[in-house]
């Protein structure tokens, strides 16, 4: 059912649902603040900052196990969902079929609040999603990373040890000046062994040649 090549698999679907859910929560607080004159519920203006901050952080935590671009995509989906929901709420009188003359100021009110939503939600949600992902990785995967680092360190030490113990023959290195014909068996059926040349000591100065 789910393969990595599919456009939408269960994991992506889950991510989509979480992003849309976070967007709806943000939209509710924004719409409540914009339309507080019409309803009894009037949250303070701080919710415009706190709701994307909190929902972005939660979304970041939820995308801990995913790639970074999944977190970024999740924050973009959050913003799009929230803005669409806010616009729907602001156009509610028209959607519910209220008759009457809507003045131009009504559309100014809608556009103004739409722009405020975009400007406020996206940066805060993006930053907090990434922050949430980093915090989630530290909290949830910290011990795994630590174990990986220990294992890697052990491997590295082992490699250095092997390199120190190794001779050119033991690691399959050929001597300088080696040709493939050298390994070919001669008429007697013996391969020609070319002794490995020890590094010749270089004269300390050019004057010795003279």
């Amino acid at each position: 059912m789910k393969t990595d090549g599919q456009l939408i698999n269960a994991k992506k679907l889950k991510l989509l649902i979480w992003s849309i859910s976070a967007g709806i929560v943000v939209a509710f607080f924004f719409a409540s603040d914009f339309l507080k004159f019409a309803t009894g519920f009037s949250p303070s203006g701080e919710v415009l900052f706190i709701s994307p901050l909190f929902c972005g952080f939660i979304l970041g935590l939820l995308t801990t196990m995913d790639e970074l671009y999944h977190s970024v995509m999740a924050s973009i989906i959050l913003t799009i969902t929230a803005v669409v929901m806010i616009i729907i709420a602001l156009f509610a009188p028209i959607i519910f079929g209220v008759s009457g003359d809507f003045l131009g100021l009504y559309y100014v009110f809608v556009i103004q609040n739409m722009l405020i939503s975009i400007v406020l939600i996206f940066p805060v949600a993006l930053v907090m999603t990434i922050t949430g992902k980093v915090v989630g990785e530290y909290l949830l995967l910290g011990h795994i990373y630590k174990a990986e680092r220990v294992a890697l360190s052990k491997d590295t030490v082992q490699w250095y040890q092997m390199l120190e113990d190794a001779t050119p023959e033991s690691v399959g290195l050929k001597p300088i000046g080696w040709k493939p014909e050298d390994d070919m068996p001669d008429e007697a059926g013996e391969t020609l062994e070319t002794p490995v040349e020890a590094p010749s000591e270089q004269p300390e100065d050019d004057t010795s040649r003279e």
Partner: peptide, 29 residues
Amino acid sequence: CLVITALISAYGLYYTSQEYAKVTETQLN
């Protein structure tokens, strides 16, 4: 928990929109 909160928020959003529509209708008419 986030999905449940979103469902409650969706109802809140619907209620807010409905109240706003009623108030606008009263003001306009």
